[in-house]
Nucleic acid binder design. Structure first.
Lengths: 151, 151
DNA sequence: TTACATGCAAAGCATTTGCAGATAA
DNA sequence: TTATCTGCAAATGCTTTGCATGTAA
C-alpha cells in the first residue's frame, strides 16, 4: 500500500465513523469531529483518554478531558471503539473492529491484538442465547508475580 | 462427599493456605488467620473486598477495610488468590487455583469459571519466553451494548 | 429556537498510603 | 525486643457528573 492509498484508507475510516455517528442521531460537534479524526487517522491503535488528551493539546486545540471521556464512551457504546479495562482506574480503547482478542502484558502496560482464529472458543459453555445483543471481549493477561509464589 | 469429608477438605484448604503463608515469612496475625479462614472455608468462590468486609462484620469481628485490601493483595501476590479486574474500580478475587478462565457477564456482574481445556490457546503468539515467571488470566467479557450498535 | 454538548470544577469510588499505636516471633 | 502489621483517616487517580454557557440542526 503506497502513501496515497494509505491516506485514502485513513480518510475512509474517518468518514465511515462519522457516517455511523450521524446515523445514531448524536450531534456532530467540532470536538467530536476532531477526536474522531485523531482516533481513526492512524490506522489500528490502542489509546487511553490521557493519550488522546495530549494529542489534542499537541495540536493546540482545546478540548476538555470530560469531553474526551464522554466521546470515548459514546464511540464505545456505538461500537466504534472497544473499551478494555486493563487495570484499576485504567481503560484503553481499541480501534480495531475486526474480531480479535487482547494480550495484555501488565508489567509493560502493553497490549497486543490476537486475531481471533488463534483462540478456539467453540466449547465455552453457558453463553446466553441472546448472543447477538452482546459483545464478547477476551483479555489474556500476562504478569509477573510481585512476590514469590510458593506451592 | 458427605458432611464430614467436606468439612475435612475445607479445613485442609485453610491449613494449606496458612502453611503457604508461613513459608513466605509474613506474620500470621489473627486478622490474616480469620480472613484466610473466611476466604477458603466455603470451597471455590469469587468474592470482593466489600463482600469479605461484610462477612467479617457478620461475625461481629472488627477488621478494617484497609487490612482486608492488604490481605487480599498479599494472598494474590503469593498465588493463593487470583485477582480479576472486572470493571473500573472493581476487583473480584477467585479462590479456585486450578487452571481456569473467567466468563464475566457484565450486566449481571456475575462470574463463571471455565475449565481451561475448553479454550485452546495453543496458537497465541508472542508470549515472552520467561513464561514460568508469569500468570496468565483470561477473561471473556459478555455485555449488552448500551446504545444501539450501527454497522 | 431549543435540545443537546461542552468545559470546568467538584464529586465519586474502589483502592492505597501515612502514621501512631499494637503485636507476632 | 523490634520489625512488621493494623486501623483510621486522608490521599490517590481515573472517571463521571452538575451546572451554566455554548451551539448544531
Amino acid at each position: 500500500m503506497n502513501r496515497r492509498e494509505k491516506s485514502l484508507k485513513i480518510n475512509e475510516s474517518y468518514h465511515k465513523a462519522i457516517n455511523i455517528l450521524e446515523k445514531t442521531g448524536i450531534r456532530i460537534t467540532s470536538q467530536r469531529k476532531i477526536l474522531t479524526k485523531l482516533i481513526f487517522q492512524k490506522g489500528n491503535r490502542h489509546l487511553s483518554a490521557e493519550e488522546l488528551f495530549h494529542e489534542v493539546k499537541d495540536m493546540k486545540v482545546n478540548i476538555s478531558l470530560a469531553t474526551i471521556y464522554n466521546t470515548l464512551r459514546n464511540l464505545s457504546n456505538y461500537g466504534l471503539l472497544r473499551e478494555i479495562v486493563v487495570d484499576q482506574n485504567k481503560s484503553i480503547y481499541c480501534t480495531n473492529h475486526m474480531p480479535h482478542y487482547h494480550l495484555y502484558i501488565e508489567d509493560e502496560e502493553k497490549i497486543i491484538d490476537i486475531p481471533n482464529q488463534k483462540i478456539d472458543l467453540s466449547n465455552i459453555p453457558e453463553i446466553p442465547a441472546c448472543l447477538s445483543l452482546h459483545d464478547i471481549d477476551i483479555i489474556v493477561r500476562i504478569r509477573t508475580l510481585k512476590d514469590k509464589k510458593i506451592n
